[in-house]
Amino acid sequence: MTMVHIQGEDKGNIVLYALSTCVWCKKTKKLLTELGVDFHYVYVDLLEEDEKEKILDVMKIHNPVCSFPTLVIDDKTCIIGYNEGRIREVLGK
């Protein structure tokens, strides 16, 4: 998988599914960076078709609509869209 790793404080396994053109995705990525947490992100729109399909299949488990940004924490908590309050709450920041 083409995930980019941003190093930071361990707050669990945080994965951000994003689009390179999406402003809400940029804001979410910026917030996570500012919070200083360890996370992985992937720009789904930049992936090759077969890889895109694989990632979307994983995304669908958490967010069947496959909208962006989708933030998944420890494979169980899913935050859809740029929701600063909810992200801070879940990450205890």
Binding site: L19, T21, C22, V23, W24, C25, V44, D45, C66, S67, F68
Partner: peptide
């Protein structure tokens, strides 16, 4: 893509 798809959706 050749058209101005919404930047916040996957075309």
């Amino acid at each position: 893509y050749g058209y101005r798809a919404c930047p916040c959706r996957l075309a």
